[in-house]
Design a protein around this nucleic acid. Structure first.
Lengths: 206, 206
DNA sequence: CGTCGAATACTCGGATCCGAGTGATAGGAG
DNA sequence: CTCCTATCACTCGGATCCGAGTATTCGACG
């Protein structure tokens, strides 16, 4: 319908790489390290394999280029990359588009909720409760980390807004879960006869 | 940290296939059709290629099996599948686990927000506003469709809860976007000197 | 001074994904 | 009766993804 343009490099990890190189040239292994140090691996899936692939793709596309290949000590060679003019342009264009037009996302939880019926009322409540606990924990962790970083005063808020977004989304999910659990227990959400529900679903699932 | 077990078939589309077969045997092409008719393609990414791969994987894993291969008219043969006992068990176990333990998700918007700085204050506001409009539209559409289905009274609420979840998440995103836009305009969220921000970002991005 | 574990830096190949393509037929327009 | 389009049902191969593996080196500890 409104399919966004076919981008040469589609893996978001490429955006992260570009973003890092805007600050300073770096080699892949170092990128992975910084990404993880800064906790950016919450927003980007950073796996070594993909990283090297993405860097190669970025180079093929002409958005970054090898600056030099050096060897420190007897370690394996490292290839240091820097962004090109084209890369700089593409970076902001990419961010801009990702913000402007919502991409189709397929969170796994959504697919599971589509078949919530399969667990039966009791199974559903049990599973949802457990999720709620985990989500709450993760939320509090993110919130805590965010607060600490801000209070340390080294990093401006602009560079941590994504945590605020993440927390908001987790809050919303949590609220929904709690509401649905209440609805099930209060009989506002019921299982029709026909539902694929087995009362022993809970046993089976564990 | 808490990595969930390695499932034989990992593509959520497999869950959808299993779900459909719980109702009645079907052949891949028909599955795709029903999935789309019911609007389930909002929760599952259904592409022909993947569908056939997933069905094959499901069969290899022994969760489904070919029932018969028939030919209607002179059309290509169609292979009709049905679930196995193992498949039925695995189905509820899968749903249960997807609900219980939140998977790491990497929504593209989150990665973009991590680099919101790149757009500069004006560019960011413009892009966020446009997204807000689109999200609002999509939300109202889902809401509308959900209401109509319920009022028609054919489908029990249990089978449409995923739409309620989706709407809630969109509401939360919208609220956050509006808040951030306000914060930028009110000077509560500012760009430090050092920010990679070009004032012509908006021009460039179009 | 030897060795054991952690860190450094990257490669490799299998698994998965997916869109474009294939080819046949049914149904309707003229 | 012929053509043309839509539907049916699936295949194929390139692109991408990613975890496990490799090989080296540094540092700590006994």
């Amino acid at each position: 319908m409104d399919s966004s343009i076919r981008r040469k490099v589609s893996n978001p990890l490429g955006l992260a790489v570009l973003g890092l190189l805007m600050e300073a040239p770096a080699h892949p292994h170092a990128m992975a390290a910084t990404l993880r140090e800064r906790g950016m691996d919450r927003a980007f899936k950073v796996t070594t394999g993909s990283l090297y692939d993405v860097v190669r793709a970025l180079e093929r596309a002409g958005w970054i280029e090898a600056q030099e290949t050096i060897r420190v000590g007897g370690r394996p060679e490292r290839t240091v990359y820097q962004y090109t003019e084209l890369g700089r342009e593409e970076f902001t264009r990419w961010v801009d588009e990702l913000i402007r037009v919502p991409a189709d996302e397929y969170p796994k939880f959504l697919s599971a909720v589509s078949y919530l019926g399969a667990l039966g009322p009791d199974g559903a409540v049990a599973a949802l409760r457990e999720r709620a606990g985990r989500v709450r924990a993760s939320m509090e962790e993110t919130r805590q980390a965010h607060r600490e970083v801000l209070e340390a005063g080294e990093v401006p808020r602009l560079f941590v807004v994504e945590a605020e977004y993440a927390v908001r989304m987790e809050e919303a999910e949590l609220a929904w879960i709690e509401e649905i659990v209440d609805d099930i227990e209060a009989g506002r959400l019921t299982w029709p006869e026909s539902a694929i529900s087995r009362d022993d679903a809970t046993e089976e699932a564990r």
